[in-house]
Design a protein around this nucleic acid. Structure first.
Lengths: 173, 173
DNA sequence: CACCCCTAGTAGACTTGTCAACTAGGGGGA
DNA sequence: TCCCCCTAGTTGACAAGTCTACTAGGGGTG
């Protein structure tokens, strides 16, 4: 459900193929959602079956043909309906924090290793977010403004994560 | 997999029944994991089948009998193995941020409503975390220290969220 | 007593997401 | 030419998580 609406939202910005979408889920929107390619193609097929999107085959130049999907009017309506619907409560899920919570049988060194792994993951995210930030100019349209705000959201949380790691590591020895 | 290890970790702190675990997933550990009761009971059965936990029926006083699960030696070994294994990379998933990212067809008022919903959710989480914080004394053991650190993690992120909401709402009109 | 509600635990169907292997065609290099 | 690799898309099996409805017993209330 959520994935289908996110895809619809991306199609509302521009027509895309399954491979294009996969690229988005691996980069620009990766900071709030990701998706397996199998799932993307199946969702796309479902959207077409429901009449929320349409397909046209675009002959590939030096690459396989791609199936460009565009949002339909019904699709736009479904998108707005979702955007304004009740917020789906989302469960927090953080396996790393779970480990720290349960780590009493580990020695300081092992906990330190876990923290270091988390730090490098966080630094990776930070770099990815900064790369996106650098590659987008200043917000000119309403849409760009909103997208920048979500980028900022990601950056703030990653920085908070790094600060927390500093503090916890300091307390360890 | 992750859920089974988290349950194992909780059983390592104290023996618990399925209902006890459900209470934990709804309160103390809710800030990093939650679980459906059907899933908890099935996982518990699997742990027993694998020999990682054992059950004893405890006659209920004024309530149905409960099945107390305790971790076995094999269970402790499996727990440590998980705690020190490679970090499972976890995909970010935030349907609310997705909406903001895709909200260009919404007017400011509708976006403002979304932000307000998110704010009240965040305030609810903040209250829940502060309630847990208030109900736990200062950390005396190693385990308590680590658990407090994860609470602090949650608090910091919730506060970051509230700050971000302030800034975005300020920029809206 | 009959009724209702509460807790502990169970079961089935279903949705969502993941993994791995596969087709099909183009292009490039030995 | 043969082989390999790349991209786009497809499929099946499966794991994880959710939703709904259910059994079974205790206890309190009219």
């Amino acid at each position: 459900m959520i994935l289908s609406r996110i895809i619809l939202g991306l199609l509302a910005i521009a027509p895309l193929s399954g491979a294009d979408l996969k690229r988005h889920f691996d980069s620009t929107v990766n900071h709030f959602w990701s998706a397996d390619k199998a799932q993307i193609y199946r969702t796309l097929a479902a959207l077409v079956a429901e009449g929320l999107a349409s397909v046209t085959v675009v002959p590939g130049t030096g690459a396989p043909d791609s199936q460009e999907h565009r949002i339909t009017d019904a699709g736009r309506a479904a998108l707005v309906a979702w955007l304004t619907s009740e917020l789906d409560r989302q469960p927090e899920r953080d396996a790393f924090i779970a480990r720290i919570f349960l780590a009493e049988s580990l020695d300081d060194e092992a906990v330190g290793r876990l923290l270091e792994l988390r730090r490098s993951a966080a630094l990776g995210q930070l770099a990815a977010l900064e790369a996106i930030e650098a590659s987008t100019g200043p917000a000119r349209t309403r849409g760009e403004h909103l997208r920048l705000a979500t980028l900022d959201h990601g950056l703030r949380h990653v920085r908070t994560e790094l600060e927390w790691l500093d503090i916890v590591e300091e307390q360890l020895p």
